[in-house]
Design a protein around this nucleic acid. Sequence first.
DNA 1: GCCAACGTTGGC
DNA 2: GCCAACGTTGGC
Length: 156
Amino acid sequence: MRYWLMKSEPADCSIDDLAAMPGQTVAWYGVRNYQARNFMRDQMSLGDLAFFYHSSCPRPGIAGIVCIASTPYPDATQFDPASPYFDPKSSQDAPRWINVDVRLVEKTPFVDLATLREHDSLANMRVLQKASRLSITPVDPDEWRTITTRLMNPKS
DNA sequence: GCCAACGTTGGC
DNA sequence: GCCAACGTTGGC
């Protein structure tokens, strides 16, 4: 059981968009980075939990918690010439890109980037590093605990 | 819109 | 296999 942080542009798919999906589940398509792909392919397990992070938007931050709801399978968009994620070098026989399904667990109190930065114990988080572009990153269990118990608790 | 970081591409 | 050029990400 591992913890993750997964970035999504809310203009593309926000936490509310996810909540409105059938089964509150969505395929995490469009990953075109080998490191992020390998996390999905090699290290994610069914039931792993992930922070759903809004990136490239006026207020970046963690908007909710999702769980990994499928094993990896080929990303359909790589075969679709009409998709921005089309990859002409990929083939049905040897798909280059895969995705997992992700299901909403809960929409949480929003934890913005500035708040994450205020906590020394989170300083090593990948998403806080300068120009961190990786769209899927592992989250340390201690970091997970700090965020869920201290930053998402409305009473704290 | 700027710009730093960094992954990818392609010529050699 | 090196490395310069290029493209993309993403916070500000």
